[in-house]
């Protein structure tokens, strides 16, 4: 029982850490979006993503995942799918990319400190993430659902 309790506390403290980033992130996003800033930023970053089938809205969760981590990237995707900003196929491509390349700053620092070379920690992940996403984009049929699709329907 104490083991379960310990696990519960670990989960809750992890969740607290997530909340401390996700809630401010969502506020900043909302402000940026209301001011039309996100569209401008996305247009700059979206070019290489277009090749793997991601539009402006689809590129954003990838960038969030690469910088902040898969949990935060997933948070953005969950919202994007719920509000119909990305299709289910795009969500699959994004999911593939960020499963391979996420939290590149945090993950890299841990092992760089232990002596692994920086280049080998970053480059293979970005490269394979891009290649695998391209493969998924090419070979996945459309999984589109009408806008307003929610999590329950995705499961």
């Amino acid at each position: 029982m104490s083991i379960l309790w310990e696990g519960f506390l670990q989960g809750m403290s992890g969740l607290w850490t997530v909340a401390c980033v996700v809630i401010p992130l969502m506020i900043v996003l909302e402000i940026a979006e209301s001011n039309g800033l996100l569209q401008k930023l996305n247009r700059l970053m979206a070019k290489p993503f277009r090749i793997i089938g991601l539009g402006e809205e689809g590129a954003f969760p990838v960038v969030v995942a690469v910088v902040f981590g898969i949990t935060y990237g997933s948070g953005v995707i969950i919202n994007h799918v719920r509000t119909g900003k990305v299709t289910r196929k795009e969500a699959r491509v994004i999911g593939t990319f960020m499963a391979i390349a996420h939290a590149l700053i945090e993950d890299t620092i841990i092992f760089w400190v232990l002596g692994a070379p920086l280049f080998l920690l970053v480059a293979p992940r970005l490269l394979l993430a891009y290649v695998m996403s391209y493969v998924v984009h090419k070979f996945t049929p459309e999984l589109d659902l009408p806008n307003g699709d929610n999590l329950e329907a995705m499961d």
């Binding site: 379960l4 696990g7 519960f8 670990q10 989960g11 809750m12 992890g14 969740l15 997530v18 909340a19 996700v22 809630i23 401010p24 992130l25 969502m26 506020i27 900043v28 996003l29 909302e30 402000i31 949990t71 997933s74 948070g75 969950i78 919202n79 999590l151």
Partner: peptide, 21 residues
């Protein structure tokens, strides 16, 4: 923004907490 953040935290918490256990 706060509402969206709380919603997201709840969705992830349903996964993260049981997994940690």
């Amino acid at each position: 923004g706060t509402k969206t953040g709380l919603q997201t935290t709840w969705e992830l918490g349903k996964v993260v907490v049981p997994t940690a256990m």
